[in-house]
Amino acid sequence: MLGKLTKHEFLTVGRLAIPAYLAILAISVVGRFLTWITSRQYVIDHVAPTFVRIIKILSSLISTVYVLAFIAFIVMTVVFLVYRFYKNYFTDEGYLMLTLPVKPASLIFSKLFNSWIWLLFSAIIAVASLYITLGHYDQLTDLISRTFDSVKQVIDREGDFIRDELGVPIWVFVIELVIFVILLISRYIFEWYASIGAGTMIAKKHKIIGTLVAFLILDNISYAVTGGFVAIATSVAPDYFTELSQSGGKALQLVVLGYSGVNLLLAGLLFWLLTYVMKHKLNLE
């Protein structure tokens, strides 16, 4: 059932997200075209100066629209994914979704998986859009391949040194970083989901305000828990941490692993809070 829920959510979000993706790419293409055409010597020599000037004005207008659309695109992706959760489970649509023969955990995870997928797609579209807008494709492609080459060279040359510094092979550290990012994003998504659950429970008439207040509270608790762990760890073994701080690589690895562990714990607590609200304190009225 989790697969079916994820599939239907993917299709629903796609129906709305794909036109937004196409729009941002179209603005990028138009902006790039106007910049290109006004920089051609042939156009400057053969077209009336007034016309070239108009195109340049249009080009700068498109650039402004692009920057605004780009910011809106990033913000709206996050807002939309959080809103989908609210609308599906905490408005009248909840009468359908919450009476489906599926476990609450499946309902929550289908939304989480979709958030991962669509955030990844949005990041890819954002990079593609920047790539189109900036132009200089040869230089950009060259820069990307040179970056990959230099990373590979560093790993080949300094592999042993990195392993000694981190205490693990570089590929293990890369996997740890990926897990770190996934857990961090998941914790934030659960923070929003739990805020929706808690906010609608405490503020029956002003659900949005309740959600925002709950988010501020839960976010501060999350920071306090993270800070608490750091304080406890450094006070229990101060010598170890002083020694560790002098070894950059191992300290970095400990931060990544430690922060991942804290995020996993927080995500678990937020998930528990959310399922509790959905099972015991549902407020669809």
Partner: peptide
């Protein structure tokens, strides 16, 4: 629970459909 929901068909007072579909 999950098992009872398989055999219960529920029509609420409210409109629960996603209107964009």
């Amino acid at each position: 629970g999950v098992e009872s929901k398989k055999i219960v068909a529920y029509l609420p007072e409210r409109n629960y459909l996603d209107l964009s579909k």
